[in-house]
C-alpha cells in the first residue's frame, strides 16, 4: 500500500489541475449555449448551413443543439478528449517514470515483486481516473442542469459517463501496455497520445466518409458516441465487450511484459 499512497500523492496536484480544467470546460461550454439559445435564432438552422466536414470536426453531427442535452452531447466530445488524454498519459507515465527518472534502482531493489509494484500503480491510476470521472459527472449534472429547463438529462449524462469511464480505462491500459513493452521510457507517453490522436482523426474521417464505416471498430472514439448512447440508446453491447476485452488483454500485456523485461537502468 505504501507505493499506492506515494503515487496518489505524486499525482494529487495534476489531478486537481485537470479537475479545474473540466469544471471550466463545462462552465464555459454551457454558458455559450446560454448565449446562443437566448439570441432567438435556432441553432439548428445555423448548423444546417455549415459544411459537413466542419460539423464532423467540431463534433456536432446530428445532435439537436436547441436542447441542453444536445448541446451537452457536443460538449461531451471535448470532455472525452480531455479524459482520454489524461488517462493515456497517466497510464504511460505511472509505469515508465521510474525508469525515466532513474529511480528504478531505488524502487525495484526493495523487497516487493514487480507484479505487486504494477498492481499498486494500476490501482493508483484507477483511483485517479475514477475521481476524474466523478468530477466530470458531478460538474456536468450540476451545470447542465442549470440550463435544462426541466428536460430530464441526468440519466443521459450518467450513461455517457459510463462510456467515458470505459474509454478512460481503455486508453489508460494502452498507456500502461506500451510503457511495459517499450524499453525506452521517454517514448511511452508520446506514443500513447499519438495513438489517441490517430484514432481520433480516424473517427472524424469516418464521420466524413460513410464508406469506411467498418473501421469504427478500431477507434474507441466511435464506441460510445452521445448521439447513440443518449435518448434511450444505451451502450452498444458489442462495443462494451470489445473495450472490456481490450482492457483485460492490455493489462495482461502490462503485467507479463513488465515482469519479463530488463529494466532500463
Amino acid at each position: 500500500m505504501n507505493i499506492y499512497w506515494k503515487e496518489m500523492k505524486t499525482y494529487r496536484k495534476s489531478l486537481i489541475f485537470w479537475s479545474i480544467g473540466i469544471l471550466l470546460m463545462v462552465v464555459s461550454g454551457m454558458s455559450k449555449y446560454a448565449g446562443l439559445s437566448s439570441s432567438g435564432q435556432s441553432m439548428n438552422d445555423l448548423m444546417a448551413d455549415m459544411p459537413k466536414a466542419l460539423k464532423a470536426i467540431v463534433g456536432v453531427g446530428d445532435l439537436d443543439l436547441n436542447s441542453a442535452s444536445g448541446y451537452y452531447g457536443l460538449l461531451y466530445l471535448y470532455l472525452l478528449l480531455m479524459a482520454t488524454i489524461h488517462a493515456a498519459m497517466l497510464g504511460a507515465n505511472i509505469i515508465s517514470k521510474e525508469e525515466r527518472d532513474k529511480t528504478s534502482e531505488f524502487l525495484f531493489v526493495k523487497p516487493v515483486s514487480r507484479n505487486s509494484i504494477i498492481t499498486s500503480k494500476l490501482l493508483a491510476a484507477l483511483t485517479n481516473i475514477v475521481i476524474f470521472n466523478l468530477v466530470t459527472l458531478i460538474s456536468s449534472i450540476l451545470i447542465v442542469g442549470q440550463y435544462s429547463k426541466g428536460e430530464a438529462i441526468n440519466g443521459d449524462i450518467a450513461i455517457t459517463m459510463v462510456g467515458l469511464f470505459l474509454s478512460q480505462l481503455l486508453f489508460m491500459s494502452i498507456g500502461t501496455g506500451i510503457a511495459a513493452v517499450k524499453r525506452k521510457p521517454k517514448t511511452a507517453g508520446s506514443l500513447s497520445t499519438g495513438i489517441l490522436l490517430l484514432t481520433f482523426i480516424l473517427s472524424v474521417a469516418i464521420d466524413l466518409n460513410e464508406q469506411i464505416e467498418g473501421l469504427k471498430y478500431i477507434t474507441p472514439f466511435k464506441y460510445f458516441e452521445p448521439k447513440n448512447v443518449m435518448y434511450g440508446g444505451g451502450l452498444d453491447p458489442v462495443f462494451v465487450v470489445l473495450s472490456v476485452g481490450m482492457i483485460v488483454a492490455l493489462f495482461f500485456v502490462t503485467y507479463v511484459f513488465f515482469k519479463k523485461r530488463d529494466l532500463n537502468v
Binding site: T10, D101, K102, T103, E105, F106, V109, K110, P111, V112, S113, S116
Partner: peptide, 21 residues
C-alpha cells in the same frame, strides 16, 4: 526469490537518483 532475499540486501547504486520533490 528476489522479493524475499531483498529484505536483507542494502544497495547503493553508482549513480543516485531519487524522487526530486
Amino acid at each position: 526469490f528476489a522479493p524475499e532475499i531483498k529484505k536483507e540486501i542494502g544497495y547503493l547504486p553508482s549513480e543516485v537518483f531519487y524522487y526530486d520533490n
